[in-house]
Amino acid sequence: MAGVSEAMPGQFLLGKLDDVARWAQSSSVWPLTMGLACCAIEMMSVTNATYDIARFGSEVFRASPRQADLMIVSGRVAQKMGPIIKRLYDQMADPKWVISMGACASSGGVFDNYAIIQGVDTIVPVDVYVPGCPPTPDGLLYALNLIQQQIRQGGRGGILARA
């Protein structure tokens, strides 16, 4: 969209429509219902009243990857789980984003062994990394805010970002 508004300068409506679309997109980032380990407990607690992820429009954890925009990889990724996560990511519709939540998903953490994939970014592209073991729910909300900022500044997730 940015390319169109640059090719035709002075097109006021195009620019504003772009902003509205980004605002709508960033205010409805729906995560995928997917918990892998103990970080998933903290991921679930962002939906409770104290943290209330609904304030950012992301309270709808979709059970189907085809309806989800955001994959929160919450927990250590075992070698056997890797292909499943890759498949879930491929089933999500573009644009899509990935948060790598916690030490294990981001880098393997303490589990530097044969069973755990050392960083989920070796199988899916990660947009935001959250350190912590586990991160606090506010830490995850901060990561979601980073993704929203990225969308509002014109960032596009998934295949569009790599195009």
Binding site: S106, S107, G119, D121, V126, D127, V128, Y129, V130, P131, G132, P135, T136, D138, G139, Y142, A143, L146, Q150
Partner: peptide, 12 residues
Amino acid sequence: RFEMADYRRGSF
């Protein structure tokens, strides 16, 4: 301090 998330792996 708990706000440590970032976009790039190298920044950690």
